[in-house]
Computed example of a mutant assay.
Amino acid sequence: MRVVLTGGGTGGHIYPALAIAGELKRLEPEASFLYVGTNKGLESSLVPRQGIPFEAIDISGFKRKLTFENARTIWRFLRAVSRSKQILREYRPDLVVGTGGYVCGPVVYAASRLGIPTLIHEQNVVPGLTNRFLARFASKIAVSFEESLAYFPKQKTVFTGNPRATEVIHGDAEAARRSLSIPTDKKIILLVGGSRGARAINEATLVLSEAMSEFTDCHFVYVTGEVHYETIKATLHERSGSPDNLTLLPYVHNMPDLLAATYVSVNRAGASTLAELTALGIPSILIPSPYVTNNHQEKNARGLERAGAAVVLLEKELSGATLKQALASILGDQDKWSQMHDQSRKIGKPDAARQIVHLLRGTH
């Protein structure tokens, strides 16, 4: 089976595509892939690292208000459709899979015009503009949240969960501890702001770092994002250095391994992140980004909060003190941790990628 994958901009769109590829490769070792993205998105660096051939097209997203730039975007879209058709004719895929981001638009649309079966996956509760546009052209639609079913044609939409959930259940906790030299008797607290970092989380964590030594049975792994790493490293040094129970990282490439070892996680509330956490039952403190379309991260996070699987701190509520308090409320109450763990596992969909692969096989 030959499959074109497309999706980009942020890790939330890229990792689900890679998870689908990984599961399909496990089930069909002869499967081959081509990834179509942009040179501006993270996919241009993440995808080649996975050994998947990469092709770039030039495309940008629509503005949500009438501007002259949207006219130029339409022109770029038409050019990108033409380039996508050329790539598809040369590669001759059996299927095209889109996992979100504006780059999916021309690729999936071009595939539908060429009669190639397509599947799109929507990660968030409220669909983005690109997937709303593609819904009429896609052969199948998979969604991460049951609430999303109402936005798409009933006859071709399936609630599968997020395929990234399947990817993380194969993580190796011992390998993560070895790679970071973390003793087995320490509870790992993971703090991460997303693939590009998050300034508010970083600022709160810097303040929290002054109290990390109080959590004697914990080891903190703090992922700053590559953009902020050097600044934060220097700031910690100026403040008398990092605590002994803190590991500072710019980025994590073996996230499934690290998550497998994580006791509590502090994260944004992107859909892929929530899929990972619930697949493993990791209690979490979620800090939704207020800068995303339709405020979808808060909507994602509130679902876990209602289920009792997470604590939600809005960015306007976030400080070193509130973060410390939220952590202490979980770490200091074993019953609360256990309840959050159980509730998180209940809403997880660890077989999501396999379900999507079955859909692909039915479409092919």
Results as ranks from 00 to 15, higher is better:
Thr38Tyr: 03
Arg178Ala: 14
Val252Phe: 02
Thr322Tyr: 07
Trp75Cys: 06
Ala326Cys: 07
Arg239Gln: 14
Pro48Ser: 10
Val207Asp: 15
Ala328Thr: 11
Ile52Phe: 07
Thr293Asn: 08
Leu277Pro: 15
Lys299Phe: 00
Pro283Cys: 12
Thr6Arg: 09
Asp185Cys: 00
Ala80Asn: 00
Tyr102Asn: 01
Arg92Lys: 15
Gly51Trp: 01
Leu149Ala: 00
Cys104Lys: 05
Pro48Cys: 09
Glu55Phe: 01
Pro29Glu: 04
Tyr151Leu: 04
His121Ala: 06
Thr235Lys: 15
Glu317Cys: 05
Glu230Tyr: 12
Asp217Gln: 10
His358Gln: 15
Leu236Phe: 09
Lys154Ala: 15
Ile201Gly: 08
Ala271Ser: 14
Lys65Tyr: 04
Ala271Pro: 09
Lys63Gln: 14
Met212Thr: 15
Gln155Tyr: 12
Asn70Ala: 08
Leu119Ser: 05
Gly303Asn: 11
Ala31Val: 03
Ala328Arg: 13
Leu318Pro: 09
Asn70Glu: 03
Asp185Ser: 03
Leu331Lys: 08
Glu174Ser: 14
Ile14Tyr: 06
Glu174Trp: 01
Ala31Phe: 06
Leu66Cys: 06
Val143Ser: 01
Phe159Cys: 04
Glu214His: 08
Ser272Trp: 00
Gly22Leu: 02
Leu114Glu: 08
Val223His: 13
Leu249Ser: 05
Leu190Ile: 05
Lys186Asn: 01
Pro288Cys: 03
Asp217Leu: 00
Ala211His: 15
Lys85Pro: 03
Leu66Thr: 11
Arg64Gly: 14
Glu305Pro: 07
Leu34Glu: 04
Ile330Met: 08
Ala279Leu: 11
Gln334Thr: 09
Ala56Val: 03
Cys218Val: 00
Ser195Arg: 09
Glu315His: 03
Cys104Asp: 12
Ala261Arg: 01
Ala110Thr: 01
Ile116Phe: 00
Arg177His: 03
